[in-house]
Design a protein around this nucleic acid. Structure first.
Lengths: 148, 148
DNA sequence: TTCTATACTTACCAAAAGGAGAGTATCGGA
DNA sequence: TCCGATACTCTCCTTTTGGTAAGTATAGAA
C-alpha cells in the first residue's frame, strides 16, 4: 500500500530539500498552534493514502480512486478529497459531460507534502521489524511487573 | 507547539539521512499493509506532540509531560505513552520510591521517528500561508459552482 | 492523625468518526 | 421506455475517541 515506495527521484530530491533545511528558529505561539492543527489534519489516514496513489498515478477519477485506496467508503473519499482541495493539496477538474467526469491530481503543494512524508514512510519500512520486536518484548515481559 | 523547530543538528542530520535514501523498491503487500498500519498509529496527534517535547527536553516525568503537552488529559497521556513504550519509541523507567517517580525518554527508534517527521513540520511551517490562501479562495469562490 | 505528592486506573458519558445503503441528475444506447 | 454509467449526497446507525471526575497506594511531613 505505501506507494510512496515508488516515489519518483524528483520527489525524493524534494524530500531531501525539506529535511536539509534548518528549521526556522522560534516562532510566535500562534503560528505554532496553526502548524500543529495543520499537521493534525494532514496526517490523517485517508489523506495520506490518497496522497500516495495520486503521487503514483498522477491523474485519477473518483471511481478509480475509490478502487485504489483500499477500504475507503464513498463518503470518506468525497470528504477527504474536499478537504484536500480546500487546503490546496489537490486540483479538481470537472468536465461538464454526461455521465459526469471529474479528475483529481496533486498540486505542487500536495506533491511537496508527499515528499515531506517520504521520510516517515521510509522510517516505517525500515523499522517495522524493530517495532514488532519491541511489541513482542513488551507484551511478554511487560505484564506483571514495572507498573507504578 | 511544534518544538521540532528546535530539533538538534544531529536530529536534522538524521532526517537528511532518511530522506536521502532511495526507498526500497516494491515489497510484498503484507509488508505494505503493516507499514500502513504502523504509520496510522504513529501519526497520531498526541504521539507527535509527545515525541516533540521529549525530543526537546530529553527526560521527563509524567506530571511535567502533562504540563508541557498542552491540552492532554491524564488518560490520553498514559494511553499514548503506553503505546509508544510498546512500540519501542520511549523508555519508561520506574524508580521504586514513594511518592512514585517515573521517567520517560525517547529511544533511538523514537528519535529517528522524530527526525523523519521533521520534514513534515518544516513543510507545514513553510506552507501555512499557502494553505490558508487556498482555504480562503476555496471558501469564497467554491460555493455555488463547480460541484458535479 | 490527617495531609500531600505522584502516577496512575476506572467508570461514565458525550461527541465525533465513519460505514451501509439508498437516492439524485442526466444523457445516450438497447 | 428503461437501463447504465458517474459522481456524488443524505440519512441512519454503530463504533471509536476522548474528556471528567473520582478512586488507589504509600511514606513522610505537620
Amino acid at each position: 500500500m505505501p506507494r510512496v515506495l515508488r516515489f519518483t527521484e524528483e520527489q525524493i530530491a524534494a524530500a531531501k530539500r525539506y529535511a536539509a533545511q534548518t528549521p526556522p528558529s522560534d516562532l510566535d505561539p500562534r503560528i505554532e498552534a496553526l502548524v500543529n492543527d495543520l499537521i493534525g489534519q494532514v496526517a490523517d489516514r485517508w489523506t495520506m493514502l490518497i496522497l500516495e496513489v495520486l503521487a503514483e498515478k498522477g491523474v485519477l477519477r473518483f471511481t478509480r480512486l475509490s478502487e485504489l485506496v483500499e477500504g475507503i467508503s464513498q463518503k470518506m473519499l468525497t470528504q477527504t478529497l474536499r478537504h484536500m482541495e480546500r487546503d490546496g493539496l489537490v486540483k479538481r477538474t470537472v468536465h461538464p459531460v454526461v455521465p459526469p467526469k471529474v479528475e483529481y491530481r496533486l498540486t505542487q503543494l500536495g506533491m511537496n507534502l508527499g515528499a515531506a512524508f517520504c521520510g516517515v514512510w521510509v522510517w516505517a519500512a525500515e523499522n517495522l521489524k524493530h517495532v514488532e520486536q519491541a511489541r513482542g518484548a513488551f507484551d511478554k515481559k511487560g505484564r506483571g511487573a514495572g507498573r507504578a
